[in-house]
Design a protein around this nucleic acid. Structure first.
Lengths: 209, 209
DNA sequence: ACATGTGAAGCGCTTCACAGCG
DNA sequence: CGCTGTGAAGCGCTTCACATGT
């Protein structure tokens, strides 16, 4: 069995990768049962998911940890660096700019932008905050293909379109609104209030999931 | 058609609610086509989703905006206030503490916690940061049933268990690790690196979704 | 006339259960 | 013998298409 990799599998691969990294300095082999335990999914799902990357396990033994990590990284496009810009330097934008987890995984922040003159020119995480007016030019010049939107809801759609025409092909949207994806651009939404509301739905009913 | 509400529907209800709020001061009726356009889903899905809340639309006309918002809020448990605590006052934890979007939607932050003596005692968003040693007592005392974890990965599981025994029933986990849900606790994960890695998967392949 | 509500068909993911293979 | 890889069955969600109701 090979491609195409199901959407849901793509969403789980990063989780598996992190689990593998967390035991990297242990024994060289790992079974689907062990990954399943760490990742909180069934072992059948693990095996099915991994089978989409080709058959890299050894029957009766398990998977070679290092090899499997390489396979997953390759699948996710993590064998190269990715340049990203963050737009919106409010609380969340600054937190994202200062978040160390990006660089570790080959995501390089190459620009920070905001429209507020009180913020432009200030330093965040060792970078100067630039005005939105320069966004289009600088995204293109620096070759950023990922944009992170952390602006108020009202600004998000316009920023998304500016990013799109500047060469950005993937957008991670933290603004509390739905963005209509510009042509050729993939948008993912991360919404804090939404997550809390999902939790209260289930808490109201006294059962999980 | 009535209950139970499918998981995927629960995940979309908060989005519909936000769309409705954004046109609240417009005309009193809205069609499934209009909601679909705003929310970025098909109108058939809208109608099916809303049918799980009961039939509140008027054929040939659409849905009453105010009435529909009430129905969704009731379904999501948003007719009462919810007390939450945030654990971990790093960049992300502070950003969450300062995020205005929670209070607007009836989520009250009643405690901020961190283990670092340099942080405890300082003020964040008008609240004193307290040490983890007081977490258990204070969560119970203040009746928080939602916990937000913004700690490093290593601390997340233990914090989750402390929260659980203190009365927390829902956890929103921002730590870059998978938490094994304590008994009776619902855990949702928000993971920035994971989201970026999903985007690079598709960007590597030149197609979205 | 028009938009909802919904059976039924279609589709994709999960789970099962075991064949395959080291 | 143990664990992977995988057809097949099962399940849940989406989409279709139109009956229903105002």
């Amino acid at each position: 069995m090979k491609r195409p990799v199901p959407k849901v599998t793509v969403q789980r691969l990063p989780v598996y990768l992190r689990c593998l990294e967390s035991l990297s300095t242990g024994k060289p082999q790992v079974s689907s049962d062990e990954i399943a335990e760490m990742a909180g999914v069934s072992s059948a799902k693990i095996r099915k998911d991994l089978s989409f990357l080709g058959s890299h396990g050894v029957r009766g033994v398990g998977y070679d940890v290092e090899h499997l990590m390489r396979e997953i990284r390759m699948e996710l496009g993590l064998t190269r660096d990715w340049a990203l810009v963050i737009v919106g330097m409010g609380n969340l934008g600054r937190a994202l700019a200062n978040y160390g987890g990006f660089a570790e995984r080959r995501f390089q922040t190459v620009g920070l932008f905001d429209n507020d003159p009180k913020k432009t020119g200030t330093m965040v995480h060792g970078m100067v905050v630039e005005p939105i007016s320069t966004l289009k030019r600088e995204v293109a010049a620096r070759g950023a293909t990922i944009g992170v939107i952390a602006t108020p809801a009202e600004a998000a759609q316009e920023i998304a379109e500016t990013l799109a025409v500047s060469g950005v092909r993937s957008i991670l949207n933290f603004a509390p609104t739905v963005i209509k994806p510009p042509d050729g651009v993939d948008v993912r939404r991360v919404d804090l209030s939404t997550e809390l509301q999902i939790l209260t739905f289930y808490q109201t009913r006294n059962f999980a999931d």
